[in-house]
Design a binder for these strands. Structure first.
Lengths: 149, 149
DNA sequence: GCAACCTTCATGATATATCATACATTCATC
DNA sequence: GATGAATGTATGATATATCATGAAGGTTGC
C-alpha cells in the first residue's frame, strides 16, 4: 500500500499543507498564491538578488521565478527599476500594495503553520527538520568531495 | 531565514527527492514521469477504479488523473476498453509495454528510496511517517466530529 | 578591440495542480 | 418512464516545475 511508503506521506503532507494554506489566504480575500507570496517576501528582504539567487532561496528554478515575478509585476505588487551598471538586470522593489499584501498575509501564514503543527513538540519539529534535511542531502548531486576521481 | 521554517524543509526535501528520482529514471532511458508511473502502478493493481478513486490513492485530483491517463494511453502504456454496464466509464488495462515499463522502473524506484533514506533508522522513518501524517490530519478539513455546532 | 565565455533574463514545450464547468450517463424516485 | 440528483469524464483557464534555448549584456584574455 502506498500509505506505507514514506515519500508518499511526504508528498501527501506537503500537498495538504499547501492546499490548507492557500485556502486560508483565499478565504481572507487576498489575491496571491503561496509561491508568489514567498518570492515577494524574499525580494522585500533583499532587493538586489538575481532571479537565480531568488530561486535558490525559495527552491525554485530561474524560469519559475521569472514567471512569478512577471505576475507580481503585472498585479502591481512589484516594480522594476533599471540598474545603470548592468543592462541585463533590474532592481526589484516591493510596491506599497505589495507591502500591504505581505502584511495582510503574514498573520495567516503564522496561523497556518501553528495549526498545521498542532500536537508536534519542539523536539518533534527539530527532529523532523533534521530528518528532512538528511533526505535532501541524500538526494542532492554528489558534492565535490564525492565525485572527484 | 527560510531554512528554519519546517514547511520550507518539507517542500525542499520532497522536491529534491522528485528531481533525484526522475533523474535516475531518465538516466536509465525510460520515458515516463514519476506521476505517470504512480498512476500506472495503481491501475495495474486494480483496474476497475474511477479517476476519482485513482486520484484518492495517489493524492491527485480527478483532472490531473484524467490528463495523466490520456498521456499514458497516447504512449501505449495503457489501453481503454469500454464497459458494457456503464457508458461513462472504460476499463483501463496496462498494456504489455506498460508492464515492461513498470518492471523496468521498479528497481530504480527501490534504489531511489533506499538512497534517499540512507542514515535514517527504522525508528526515524516510523517517526517521520507519523509526524507527516499528523501534519496531514491537521491540515485536513474538519471531520464530522469537529465542525458540528 | 575582438573573440570566447559567462551571466541574466525571457520564453517555448511539456507536465502537473487546481478550480470550475460542461457533458453524458446512470440512478433514485415518483 | 420522465425527472432531478448523483456520478464519471473531459477540458478550459491559470499557476507552477522542468528542460532547453535564445538573446542581450558583461567579462576576460589576448
Amino acid at each position: 500500500m502506498l500509505s506505507h511508503i514514506l515519500f508518499y506521506s511526504l508528498d501527501k503532507a506537503i500537498k495538504q499543507y499547501r492546499r490548507f494554506a492557500q485556502a486560508n489566504i483565499d478565504r481572507a480575500g487576498i489575491a496571491i498564491t503561496i509561491d508568489q507570496w514567498l518570492v515577494l517576501r524574499v525580494i522585500l528582504e533583499k532587493d538586489d538578488l538575481t532571479q537565480t539567487d531568488i530561486g535558490e532561496r525559495v527552491f525554485k528554478d530561474q524560469a519559475s521565478v521569472a514567471r512569478i515575478i512577471r505576475l507580481l509585476t503585472q498585479r502591481g505588487l512589484l516594480a522594476a527599476e533599471s540598474l545603470p551598471h548592468d543592462g541585463r538586470r533590474t532592481r526589484l522593489r516591493v510596491t506599497e500594495e505589495g507591502q500591504r499584501t505581505l502584511e495582510a498575509v503574514q498573520p495567516i501564514v503564522l496561523s497556518n503553520r501553528q495549526l498545521a503543527l498542532q500536537g508536534l513538540t519542539e523536539a518533534d519539529q527539530a527532529l523532523l527538520s533534521q530528518l528532512l534535511d538528511r533526505i535532501y542531502v541524500n538526494c542532492s548531486p554528489a558534492s565535490d568531495s564525492d565525485n572527484q576521481a
